[in-house]
């Protein structure tokens, strides 16, 4: 790993040049004050310090709606046109929780089952991480064994330091960027890294006993105390950086052609597990709410050995009825210790 430094001015130059030469995606604030990752034309719009974006950057690897292929039927039979492919791009300013979430998605889409759409975007993207210098009160990334300055998952990790940023070059992709713009980087100095202090402010929740509790108890009286207020909307799953469920549809405007696309789906929706025959194995909000937390705290760990939650706090902030995964974690801890709340 190479340790470099980039001044604020140089970073702006870097962003300008990246935007000119490649596709640059970075956190920006729209006129309504909503922070989202989006394509940017120059450094001017890019936020260099922000509390977590309203939506995570996952849609740049797994878009909410993604066209898979076109089909047409003529005298020659069925013809298919593949729509897989993406331009080279740089994702800038990704916080450690979102970096971790991409690592959590990798085994889903690029593990035993290879998803070419995801893999293509992943391979064509370089990620410049940005340490979180002002974590929001809802953040609890420390719970999952990392902190607001953890660079794993990035190609280059920036951490505020002195009058600029320390830049840890972590991968070959990162090296390529540095090599292309080496005039902008300098040798790392010894100014202390600012994000080192913020690590202390992020909450660390106790996960002791929760996985074991859920392993042994599919049915828990506790869920009866949680589900009733759920409105059954998809906010928590759609703002979640690790949720990855989708459904596949064909659409045709008549005639002999059309296209197949996939769109995010949510386990909180009534129809999510609806079977063709009309049976729904998760008939009420109780089963659906339970599934979401089982997925975050158990199933993802069972399948991939990775946490299904990265503590970004987005669902905490956005849930309209205050179903708070931090509360669920502390409650389940209590249940595992005392058998009840």
């Amino acid at each position: 790993m190479e340790k470099l430094f980039i001044s604020r001015d140089s970073l702006k130059k870097l962003l300008d040049r990246l935007a000119r030469n490649l596709n640059l995606v970075a956190p920006v604030k729209d006129p309504e004050g909503i922070i989202m990752f989006g394509p940017v034309a120059d450094a001017g719009q890019v936020l260099l310090e922000y509390q977590n974006s309203t939506l995570p950057p996952k849609s740049f690897f797994f878009p909410q709606t993604e066209r898979l292929f076109k089909f047409s039927y003529g005298q020659e039979g069925m013809a298919l046109e593949d729509m897989c492919g993406s331009d080279k791009r740089v994702l800038f300013g990704v916080h450690p929780c979102d970096l971790k979430s991409i690592l959590s998605l990798d085994p889903v889409f690029a593990g035993a089952y290879k998803d070419p759409y995801y893999i293509n975007k992943r391979e064509n993207s370089a990620i410049i991480g940005l340490a979180c210098s002002n974590p929001s009160p809802g953040c609890f990334c420390a719970t999952f064994g990392f902190g607001p300055d953890d660079g794993e998952g990035s190609d280059i990790m920036l951490t505020p330091s002195g009058k600029g940023f320390d830049a840890d070059v972590l991968t070959d992709k990162g090296q390529e960027i540095v090599a292309s713009y080496k005039d902008l980087f300098e040798k790392a100095g010894d100014s202390p890294r600012i994000a080192g202090e913020t690590r202390l402010t992020v909450k660390k929740l106790d996960l002791t006993g929760i996985k074991e509790l859920l392993d042994g108890n599919f049915e828990l009286e506790y869920w009866n105390q949680v589900f009733e207020k759920c409105l059954g909307c998809g906010i928590c799953t759609y703002v979640c950086p690790t949720c990855h469920c989708f459904d596949i549809y064909d659409s045709s405007k008549g005639g002999c052609d059309g296209e197949r696309y996939r769109s995010w789906d949510s386990c909180m929706f009534t129809h999510f597990t609806m079977m063709a025959g009309g049976h729904n194995p998760r008939p009420s909000k109780k089963e659906r709410v339970r599934n979401r937390f089982m997925h975050k705290l158990k199933y993802h760990i069972d399948r991939y050995g990775l946490a299904g939650c990265v503590g970004c706090g987005r669902c905490v902030k956005s849930c309209p009825v205050n179903i708070d995964i931090r509360r669920i974690i502390s409650d389940l801890g209590e249940v595992s210790r005392n058998g009840q709340l």
Binding site: D30, L55, Q64, L231, C233, G234, Y238, V239, P320
Partner: peptide, 16 residues
């Protein structure tokens, strides 16, 4: 257009 292009279709507006 700017407002609706942000919509996630999470249906929270409908469900509440």
């Amino acid at each position: 257009d700017r407002q609706f292009s942000r919509c996630l279709r999470c249906y929270a507006c409908r469900n509440s």
